[in-house]
Design a binder for these strands. Sequence first.
DNA 1: AGATATTTTTAGGCTAGTCTAAAATTTTAT
DNA 2: ATAAAATTTTAGACTAGCCTAAAAATATCT
Lengths: 222, 222
Amino acid sequence: MEISLTEENYIKAIFSINTNNRGLGVSTNQLSEHLQNKAGSVTDMLKRLAEKKLIHYKKYKGVFLSDKGQKMAIGIVRKHRLWEVFLMQKLKFKWDEVHDIAEQLEHIKSDELTQRLDEFLGKPKFDPHGDPIPDSKGQLSHLKAKPLSHYNTKGQFVFMGVSEHSKSFLQYLSSIGLGIGDLIKVEEINKFDNSLKIKINKNSLHFFSDKVSSNILVELKK
Amino acid sequence: MEISLTEENYIKAIFSINTNNRGLGVSTNQLSEHLQNKAGSVTDMLKRLAEKKLIHYKKYKGVFLSDKGQKMAIGIVRKHRLWEVFLMQKLKFKWDEVHDIAEQLEHIKSDELTQRLDEFLGKPKFDPHGDPIPDSKGQLSHLKAKPLSHYNTKGQFVFMGVSEHSKSFLQYLSSIGLGIGDLIKVEEINKFDNSLKIKINKNSLHFFSDKVSSNILVELKK
DNA sequence: AGATATTTTTAGGCTAGTCTAAAATTTTAT
DNA sequence: ATAAAATTTTAGACTAGCCTAAAAATATCT
């Protein structure tokens, strides 16, 4: 069965909203917002996707991915994240530059290509933002990291990933020289606004607002 | 201006027919044949491409690429051939497997990506079939190689490329273990049917029909 | 529970890109 | 040089994917 680029993007959108939603089903308006098109257009497409058995859809009741749709979504995510690793690791792109290109590359259809790319990159488990890469069977590793803001203590942490992927946030992190694997030492906590005074790799000093520290995923330094 | 995938494929088709045609202009039927769709559809699209100034088109008179169209075509060819190098050199794909995947990858839009891929691969001048890769300015190196059949003498030659790209031909060459750079020694010429008895790298013995030897591009061994 | 607000679907319309069949133009052959 | 053949264009129709506006269903508020 032929799946169009547009259909793939709907599947991906349903998947991505749903994983945040913890399995409540995705509404027409959520999709319309996410994909930047009108609710009526979304309804049209949902009918077509249901026809193709990629989703479970009941009028007015929201939508779930079918097993088939779920597999497809995971396949796309796998490709997206592998290409991001390729772009950063092999072609030396910066953090904030890879998303748009990977958004195109994720639609290339060739299982063999995905497989070989995976091997070429050393079967990475996480992408450059710390997001897990599904393996060839669709299995996801789980990152134990939590938001820096969650700990609310001084101490040393290792930077494992981000939970916000906007260009401006990633550019900010680059600008202060913070990358995956770096050491973050929390030296002071301001109890009034939950801002933190931190040091990166024992060198540069910075302040993190609550908004920043809640989007930085860390593990406790062992 | 937005160029669709379909439009890119038309531009590429016009370019590819025209380079064989040595600048005579491309007919509607040639395009219809090449792209496997109907003549009426082609006419529709030619109007649109002319509107966008990508081609010069006069009713009933065939079509040429404009400068703009020519640049676009060369850009697509450049991407196609760079990706083929990537697929073979880095991902170890076989000769006959790379074309279909490169056909998808050539449409990825990012000048920065093309540039970095080029550097990553060491700015190759030829693709794995011996076809020249346009540089970032659109300049093509020119292969001095000629068809093996052209020489019509015994002697030693270096295999530089192919002038036929079908899967079956490439698979045949793989099957006899012939790859770019290999030494071809012509030991006998059959004057009746122009078939050749040859040895590859001083080892394996084979017979080349006229059809084979006219699609194998070689240079004289120095 | 009934009125109001919100969400979702339906209906009708648009464009890109395709098709078929008929009409127009060009080429070839007598 | 004209008739026949081949090529190309036009005209009308279809699908995918989008839009707007109106109608239907659901959710919310008092």
